[in-house]
Simulated assay, not measured.
Amino acid sequence: MTSTDTALRHRERVAVARLHALLELLPTALDKRLSDANLTAFEFTLLEALQEADAHRLRLSALASRTNATLPRLSRVVTGLERKGLVTRTPCAEDGRAFNAVLTTAGLEAFESTRPLHADAVREMVLDGMTEDEVDLLADLALKILGRLDPDRRLAVTASLGAECAADPAAAECAADPLPADDCPADPAQA
């Protein structure tokens, strides 16, 4: 197909319609599953990014990139997490104009206690029934689309297409892998 063709083929329309439905339904479904933990899926993702960061601290702009959020959205969510006592906002020592988000002890505890709930929900709604090859294919297809949506590679998830990604969960722990940490491959692409 060329860009001069005006209509999408039936298979293309079906693929895009299913992707659109997935993008609409999954966040809401995850939010519902995490509601007992008093967190949204996005708040969990933000806590996860801070938990994995050095000293549980990230500059707000880096956290926005890591969580695929705009700075205004991220700022609103960080403010909400501050009210819950899960995150604090501190001036950045390296750049007096910037601020860092820092995971509090309560935030770390909330993340750790919610991690199994989140993992169960993601497995049930997305991953159960998929082979390892299908999970890899899903990751590859998502990255291919993300590369087109973020051609300037502003988001951490597209910053290093094809290489280890700063927005990917830390591979060192392999928390979702039943293998002991010593048996986890160092390269997430081998996981």
Rank of each mutant, 00 (worst) to 15 (best):
T2Q: 10
S3W: 10
A7H: 10
L8S: 07
L8C: 00
R11V: 12
R11F: 06
R11L: 12
R11G: 07
E12L: 02
R13A: 08
V16C: 01
V16E: 04
A17M: 07
R18N: 14
H20Y: 13
A21Q: 10
L22A: 15
E24V: 15
L25A: 14
L26D: 15
P27E: 08
A29K: 10
D31T: 07
R33S: 05
D36E: 08
N38I: 11
L39S: 05
L39C: 09
A41G: 12
A41K: 04
F44L: 09
L47W: 04
E48S: 00
E48N: 03
E48H: 11
E52I: 06
R57Q: 14
R57Y: 03
L58Y: 02
L60E: 03
S61V: 06
S61P: 03
R66I: 02
N68H: 08
T70C: 12
L71Q: 08
P72I: 12
P72D: 02
S75E: 13
R76M: 14
V78Q: 01
T79W: 11
E82L: 08
L86W: 15
L86M: 11
P91Q: 02
A93T: 10
A93W: 07
E94I: 13
E94S: 12
F99T: 15
F99W: 12
F99D: 06
F99A: 12
G107Y: 00
E109Y: 04
S113T: 15
R115H: 08
L117N: 01
A119G: 09
A121G: 06
A121I: 03
V122E: 06
E124D: 14
L127Y: 11
L127Q: 15
D128C: 00
M130D: 09
D133G: 09
V135Y: 01
L137R: 13
L137Q: 10
D140H: 06
D140N: 06
L143Q: 05
G147E: 01
L149E: 08
D150Y: 00
R154V: 15
R154W: 04
V157M: 11
T158S: 11
A163W: 00
P169N: 05
A171D: 00
A172D: 13
A172T: 14
C174K: 01
P178D: 06
P180E: 00
P185A: 04
P185V: 05
D187T: 06
D187K: 05
A189P: 02
